[in-house]
Design a protein around this nucleic acid. Structure first.
Length: 857
DNA sequence: GACATCTGGGTTTTT
DNA sequence: CCCAGATGTC
């Protein structure tokens, strides 16, 4: 067994007595229910401590989900509560689904009766629908997504004559979102903050935005919780009702909660008997050792004053009931969108008498990987401190590999993946985790060339796709005629000759009479204010909607959706579209209609679509996963590649600039998350030159590399040779004074990296002459590429890889063939080399691809 | 009103 | 460099 020797930085909680606890646990284990067997003593304690507040600090890979689901099973089987009396919140639908699934397995039947297991937003939305009238909404209100929000704000800005170039709607949306995340209603926004937008109009805009939402019978994501909080505060009888209902509360990923979610939980977690105020709602100052940036600090904290003023009447005495929060402060990576690590750091203070349980036994990674991750995260100061340990063997060391530039990095990783594949590794067990999504393209290009199957995780979600949003807009207008945003979205989609001018006049008309756009349209077609052509198509549209609404009564909602898509000409619009992704979009539309079957009716579907629709699937095929570090949280792979560990990219310069020390610590946690995704192999990369926004710049290795423990890390040479060209002209490193764990590294590569780093400063000009086309060669086939420059300039290198990789068989394609590629669309074959084709794509430009990836068009 | 050209801006992402 | 939004032209 390997034990990390890193001492806990903060030990707010004494260690539990291993002897006594262990014996007691073992004694119980022999008689306990079946679902408890196989839990280690800490996990078991987390499951069995049912009374009072519990914080489970669950490090990466320590069986967090298992504890949560077992705890629910335990509560149920002990008869402590019925399924409908347990509130269990997660952040993502995926996590909620996973819990439901595992619970079903554990209990041996599907968990139909857990209506309150879901995401914060879906549960908040559910509660809000019950009390919609208290928020001046109807229970069929629409949930707006960011796009709708921004368009609405744009309209408000126009109405106020504010230049939306100088004051972009998107920025205002971000501000409002931030306020809502902090639980602030328009009247509670600190005046200083409200004033920063549009010369003091920010607060007023927030207020009028809220008014507009009510008129549109709509709520945004933030409202789903904020309106809950307001209703709870203003109606003690209602909050009491929920407090009584929820006998147990479980929270997943507590480190990611924001202030609003925290307040919401506080309100629900009080014992119903006390209609009391909440101590601990005073959020002043927990130690803020990690807050190094005063400016940011000031902007993050002002909400606190507001929190102090919570208008909750009643006695002092508080009974907090059985709330169990599970989280890992070391995996808090969403501070930039309002998550408050403080929530978890302050748990014991907020919930007096809380029991804190640490899960420190890692069941995922090998010794070296865990040691590297632990050592890295130990550099953070603001943490509760955990000491992860594993009983697994040491395994392979974490590797650090430097390359000349990002192309070489991608090439090297591609080769290593092929190597792993030859060793029998499943591609599904290989992931590349990047800091920023622009890093992905280089890998995609490379994989396409190699013919290596891959999938990108994350990216635009299903319901964010234009075609889905369009289809939904049609259905929204049918369901809710007051939904102006939806109407506006589809009024001229597909093109009907109803452009800006027409819409503008509908707006005027609607505003004058205070009616929705749709009704305005109905009225306007009776007049001759529009040109005959526009008038005709608008009349047709109104008639169509009337007909669809009538059909709704007698037609299944899935059929109706299909009818609407067909009759509106929307399907046809994509059928006619010759672009590469049209086929995929039609497929998505089919998928949308199919997914409607799970819902009772149109109303039910629309209520949930914006909250629970996420893309899934595609996991059947064996493919390498490509994603950001953020979207990797919660996942694990045998083999994890971590490219781009360079100053500026990772840690991200922008985070450092904006959030200072706290930002650096969050970046470091991101590194920790990345490493702990790996079960057996973790491979880190950095490049000396990287192209950012089109220009090449020279970079220096990430300071995080210095923070890895030398004993668990192996420095390897970049495949294909000498790494660093170091073109001089640097200033002193900012990090010379940082503790350098890696200073004892002795391989040539590392020394060169160090030498380069110590000369390093901010990239500055290194615009090397890399304009030449990618030198794609296969190292294994070309052992003697000596120096970088000889590789770079030699024309043969371009052919090297193609020759090496060619199958030798003649391609079934001929020059000038018209072909279609899933990703790049249509194109023409310009060159053939064995099974590798060079294709000039209509949209995507010239690419080299393997012939099996294209078909004749 | 529809299409072409231009400019500016560019982490991370859930709901 | 590459995309989205905004402006300009027919």
């Amino acid at each position: 067994m390997i034990r990390m020797t890193e001492p806990s930085k903060i030990t707010a909680v004494p260690d539990h007595q291993p002897a006594a606890g262990g014996i007691a646990a073992r004694a119980r284990a022999s008689v306990g229910p079946k679902y408890l067997s196989g839990l280690n003593p800490e996990q078991r304690e987390a499951v069995e401590t049912l009374d009072g507040p519990v914080l489970v600090l669950a490090g990466a890979g320590t069986g967090k989900t298992r504890v949560l689901t077992t705890r629910i099973a335990h509560i149920l089987s002990q008869g402590r509560a019925r399924p409908a009396e347990i509130l269990s919140v997660t952040f993502t639908n995926k996590a909620a689904r996973e819990m439901k699934h595992r619970l079903g397995q554990m209990l041996g039947h599907a968990v139909e009766g857990m209506p309150w297991l879901g995401t914060f937003h879906s549960i908040g939305g559910r509660i809000l629908r019950f009390h919609a009238e208290l928020a001046q909404l109807k229970s069929n209100f629409t949930v707006l997504d960011v796009d709708d929000q921004v368009r609405l704000l744009k309209q408000l800005l126009q109405a106020e004559n504010i230049d939306d170039k100088r004051w972009p709607a998107r920025m205002l949306a971000g501000l409002i979102d931030g306020w809502k995340n902090r639980g602030l209603m328009p009247s509670q926004v600190p005046s200083g903050e409200a004033a920063i937008f549009a010369n003091g109009k920010g607060g007023k805009l927030y207020a009028s935005y809220q008014e507009r939402l009510k008129i549109l019978n709509a709520a945004d994501f933030g409202d789903l919780l904020l309106e809950n909080i307001r209703i709870f505060r203003e109606h003690p009888d209602i909050v009491r009702q929920y407090q009584q209902r929820f006998k147990y509360i479980l929270v997943d990923e507590y480190q990611d909660t924001n202030v609003a979610q925290y307040l919401w939980l506080r309100l629900l977690s009080q014992a119903p008997s006390s209609g009391s105020s909440l101590p601990g709602l005073t959020r002043q100052s927990v130690a803020s050792s990690q807050d190094g940036s005063p400016g940011l600090d000031a902007s993050r904290r002002p909400g606190d004053d507001q929190d102090n003023a919570l208008p909750i009447p009643g006695a002092e005495k508080v009974h907090v009931k059985n709330i169990c929060c599970v989280g890992d402060d070391d995996q808090s990576i969403y501070g930039w969108r309002g998550a408050e690590v403080d929530n978890i750091l302050r748990f014991e203070h907020d919930f007096p008498g809380a029991k804190v349980i640490r899960l420190e036994r890692n069941y995922r990674s090998t010794g070296h990987i865990l040691a590297a991750a632990s050592h890295l995260i130990a550099h953070n100061e603001g943490r509760l401190g955990k000491t992860l340990r594993t009983e697994d063997h040491d395994g392979e060391k974490v590797t650090v590999t430097g390359s000349w530039d990002s192309e070489e990095e991608a090439r090297g990783i591609g080769e290593e993946i092929e190597q792993l594949q030859r060793q029998g590794e499943k591609l599904n067990e290989i992931a590349i985790l990047v800091r920023a999504s622009y890093q992905m393209r280089e890998f995609e290009d490379r994989f396409v060339t190699l013919g290596l199957p891959y999938r990108v995780i994350g990216g635009p979600r299903f319901y964010e796709r234009a075609e889905i949003r369009d289809a939904l807009a049609y259905l929204r207008v049918i369901n809710s005629p007051a939904d102006d945003l939806a109407f506006e979205r589809i009024v001229n989609t597909p093109k009907r000759g109803l452009g800006d001018a027409t819409v503008q006049m509908l707006h005027d008309h609607a505003r004058k009479r205070r009616i929705p756009l749709f009704e305005a349209a109905r009225a306007v077609v009776e007049t001759d204010e529009l040109k005959p052509k526009a008038r005709g198509s608008l009349r047709d549209l109104v008639t169509q909607f009337d007909r669809w609404r009538a059909q709704r009564e007698v037609t299944a909602h899935t059929d109706l959706a299909q009818i609407v898509l067909d009759e509106s000409g929307y399907t046809e619009m994509w059928q006619k579209d010759r672009s590469a992704d049209a086929a995929g979009r039609l497929e998505n539309l089919k998928e949308l209609v199919r997914s409607m079957e799970e819902f009772e009716n149109l109303q039910g579907f629309l209520e949930h679509i914006s909250l629970v629709m996420d893309r899934e699937g595609g996991a059947e095929d064996d493919a390498v996963s490509l994603m950001t570090l953020h979207s990797a949280k919660g996942l694990e792979f045998d083999n994890v590649f971590l490219p781009g560990w360079e100053e500026g990219l990772f840690p991200s310069q922008r985070t450092l600039d904006e959030q200072g020390r706290a930002g650096l610590e969050e970046e470091r946690r991101l590194g920790h998350v990345g490493l702990t995704r790996a079960r057996r192999r973790a491979k880190i990369y950095f490049a000396t030159n990287r192209r950012i926004h089109g220009t090449w710049s020279t970079t220096i290795p990430s300071r995080f590399l210095d923070e890895l423990p030398a004993a668990n890390v192996e420095i390897t040479e970049s495949k294909g040779g000498s790494g660093w060209g170091g073109s001089g002209g640097y200033g002193a490193s900012r990090f010379d004074d940082m503790e350098a764990f890696g200073s004892s590294y002795s391989t040539p590569g590392w020394q060169r990296a160090q030498a380069n780093r110590n000369r390093g400063g901010q990239g500055g000009g290194g615009r090397g002459g890399f304009e030449e086309e990618t030198a794609s060669f296969s190292t294994s086939a070309s052992p003697d590429f000596g120096s970088f420059s000889s590789r770079r300039r030699g024309p043969l290198t371009i052919e090297g890889e193609l020759v090496a990789k060619s199958t030798g068989t003649t391609s079934e394609f001929a020059l000038d063939d018209r072909v279609f590629h899933q990703k790049f669309g249509y194109g023409r074959v310009t060159k053939i080399d064995g099974n590798k084709l060079t294709i000039a794509f209509d949209k995507a430009g010239e690419k080299k691809v393997v012939d099996s990836f294209v078909q004749r068009a």
